[in-house]
Simulated scan of single mutants.
Amino acid sequence: MNLSVTILELSGILDGIRGNELRRQMSGVLANGSDIVLLDMKEVNFIDSSGLGALVSAAQMVRNANGKLFVCSISDQVRMLFELTKMDRIFQSFADQEEFKRQVLATQ
Rank of each mutant, 00 (worst) to 15 (best):
E9V: 09
D88H: 06
N66Y: 09
D76S: 13
L39Y: 09
V29W: 02
F94A: 00
R23Q: 10
D76M: 04
G12S: 03
S49A: 13
D40T: 05
Q103M: 04
I47D: 04
L39I: 01
R89N: 12
F100L: 03
I17N: 10
S49E: 09
E99D: 10
L14Y: 01
R63L: 14
S50E: 14
M80T: 13
L105Y: 01
I36F: 00
S4Q: 05
M26A: 01
A31R: 13
K86L: 03
F94N: 00
L10Q: 04
I36P: 00
T107Q: 12
S75K: 10
I90G: 00
M26F: 01
I13S: 02
Q97N: 12
F46A: 05
Q103N: 11
V78E: 07
F82A: 09
L38M: 07
M1Q: 09
F46W: 03
K101I: 01
I17H: 10
A95W: 06
V5W: 02
M87R: 06
V56N: 02
V78M: 09
I74A: 01
G33L: 09
M80C: 01
L22P: 05
T85Y: 04
G12P: 02
F91Q: 08
F82E: 08
M80L: 15
K42F: 12
S34T: 15
F91K: 05
V5E: 02
K42H: 11
E83G: 01
E9M: 00
G19I: 02
E21M: 13
G12V: 01
E98Y: 08
G28V: 13
V71L: 13
G28R: 12
F91H: 11
R89C: 02
L69V: 09
S93D: 04
S34K: 04
L30A: 07
N66D: 12
I7G: 00
R23P: 00
R24V: 15
A65V: 06
S4N: 07
L8H: 09
F82C: 11
Q25R: 12
G51F: 07
Q25Y: 06
N20C: 01
Q60T: 14
V37N: 01
R79T: 13
